[in-house]
């Protein structure tokens, strides 16, 4: 693209507040021209922005922060919990990090829309992915595409010998792990994802699932469902390394989780009503996201064909649920540390 000669446009691009702290990672090619063009207030876009902000706040304040309460406890003292509680702790972390970061992204994108800016989509229902390659096309898209364009493709991408393609895949995932911090846990998390990805690459199935699962249908096929569950479990396993303080702690967590007590009722549910509520909220999130998965964010066109009263009641329900169900303690955004 042509470099800008306007210092104000450049400074505004660099310091654009909605996405400044934690993304989406915007390229100049997308954002800079938006500073250069004349913007006008767009009513529909602003309403769209507000809806996206409220959905983002719901994911952050209701889902992520509630999950965090138990994740912090379970990961701090895994010895105090049975296997099923530890599994639940890992599931809670999967939704904590998703709600936290995709929630932030929604707030950033929604805020930008109020000013007639379009930021790139950062999450596209990653937990409905049917394989790990699809997951990485749907998770933190702005970072994945950045790595693809500035690391993977300069290394030759996949248009090289299979051996080099495997090497490139390892490099990109390890670099991605490093990007999160200088800790072996992140490196291991990156390596695990590379290991998940390589079989798909070698068999040429890494671009098999490009559309959203069950597009145009209400329910997924058995194979789609199996793919989604398998992919979720694989990412869940990797998230344990991402969340743990050290590799040893992660292995300790996993070894304690994979015991007979994995098949018992999670003791965390019986000791805390809030953990049961959190689990129910996750189910609500999954349901709403599944119903709205063909939209940029699920509540964009939710109840669009229904009466205005019903739609407004739904929006009130979202706002009131943020007020009523938010966690007792607010948590700092996880991605602010990266």
């Amino acid at each position: 693209m042509k470099p800008t000669k306007s210092f104000i446009d450049f400074a505004a691009f660099v310091s654009f507040f909605p996405q400044l702290v934690a993304g989406p990672i915007e390229r100049a090619s997308n954002l800079l021209p938006q500073f250069e063009r004349k913007r006008k207030f767009d009513y529909h876009k602003a309403i769209d922005g507000l809806k996206q902000i409220s959905w983002g706040l719901f994911k952050k304040m209701v889902i992520a922060d509630n999950c965090a309460v138990f994740v912090n406890k379970v990961f701090a003292t895994p010895d105090a919990y049975n296997g099923s509680s530890l599994l639940l702790g890992a599931i809670f972390f999967a939704f904590q990090i998703y709600g936290d970061f995709s929630g932030y992204s929604d707030v950033a994108i929604g805020t930008a829309k109020l000013f007639d800016f379009d930021l790139m989509r950062n999450f596209a229902y990653p937990y409905f992915s049917r394989d790990i390659a699809e997951f990485w096309r749907r998770w933190h898209i702005s970072l994945s595409t950045w790595f693809r364009d500035y690391v993977y493709i300069p290394l030759g991408g996949s248009r090289v010998s299979k051996l080099k393609a495997v090497r490139n895949t390892f490099i990109i995932f390890v670099v991605s792990g490093f990007w999160h911090g200088a800790n072996w846990t992140f490196i291991f998390w990156g390596l695990l994802n590379a290991l998940y990805f390589i079989p798909l690459l070698l068999t040429g199935r890494n671009r098999k699932n490009l559309e959203i699962a069950a597009k145009g249908r209400m329910f997924p096929s058995i194979s789609e469902l199996a793919g989604m569950i398998t992919t979720f479990l694989l990412t869940l396993f990797a998230w344990i390394f991402f969340r743990a303080q050290s590799i040893q702690e992660a292995f300790k967590y996993i070894s304690r989780m994979l015991t007979k007590s994995l098949f018992t009722v999670p003791d965390i549910l019986s000791t805390s009503r809030r953990s049961t509520l959190t689990l129910l909220l996750i189910i609500v999130l999954i349901t709403i996201e599944w119903l709205g998965r063909e939209q940029d964010y699920p509540i964009r066109d939710f109840l669009k064909r229904r009466s205005k009263i019903l739609r407004w009641m739904f929006y009130y329900a979202v706002v009131l649920s943020i007020l009523a169900l938010q966690a007792p303690q607010q948590q700092v955004f996880i991605y602010f540390q990266f």
């Binding site: 207030f41 009513y43 309403i47 407004w312 009130y316 706002v319």
Partner: peptide, 16 residues
Amino acid sequence: MKQFIVRVLVFALPLF
């Protein structure tokens, strides 16, 4: 802009 502000205020009024 006016329509947006009115709508937002109407929506927020019951909450206030």
